[in-house]
Amino acid sequence: MKRLMPDNPIHAICLKLGALGVGMFVFAIWVMPPMYDVFCEITGLNGKTGGPYQAVSAEVDTSRTITVQFVATNNEGMPWQFAPEVRTVKVHPGEQKRINYHAVNPTDRDMIGQAIPSLVPFKAANYFHKTECFCFEQQPLKAGESAELPMYFIIDQDIPENIHTITLSYALFDVTERYADNKVTKVTQ
């Protein structure tokens, strides 16, 4: 029977230590990023708000009112005009609400934008559900074109008592070059 490890103890330890090194490299690239994503999803860290939500019929809790503020920013170099139609809405937990963002591409070239949400307080991130959102996919706008970008959301009835205000921020990125071949893919936000 052939033994797994070489007879020379120096060669054996080199193999083990080399394997440890390769293992740590694999850990850094293929384990740490997914682990971080899972960790953020569980804790709501960074205000990542999760993907499309299947609405479940539930009681609207009219005893509570939560103020939702909308913020829109352009990432550096993004020339679009991008803003929510209303800055603030008041909603009851369990109630579905639609709000529109307005985007204009004032340039003379066709562009693609991608909005990335972030929500504070982080604790609320897991209780803020979006049933439909423009941020789930890229937004192509031709030169000079404008668009209404809808977003439907429901705030969970189980949202902690001490949360009265939620701020949802969208940062708009220019991803024209990244998706230049018209291959529009879904990103989970």
Partner: peptide, 27 residues
């Protein structure tokens, strides 16, 4: 040290090969 090699490799891929490890626009 392999973790350092890993993080610069991810940078390399973000810069040249269109991945989005550290790029919010790509998730």
């Amino acid at each position: 040290m392999p973790v350092l090699a890993g993080v610069v490799t991810m940078m390399l891929m973000d810069i040249h090969f269109g991945t989005s490890f550290f790029n919010a626009a790509g998730g």
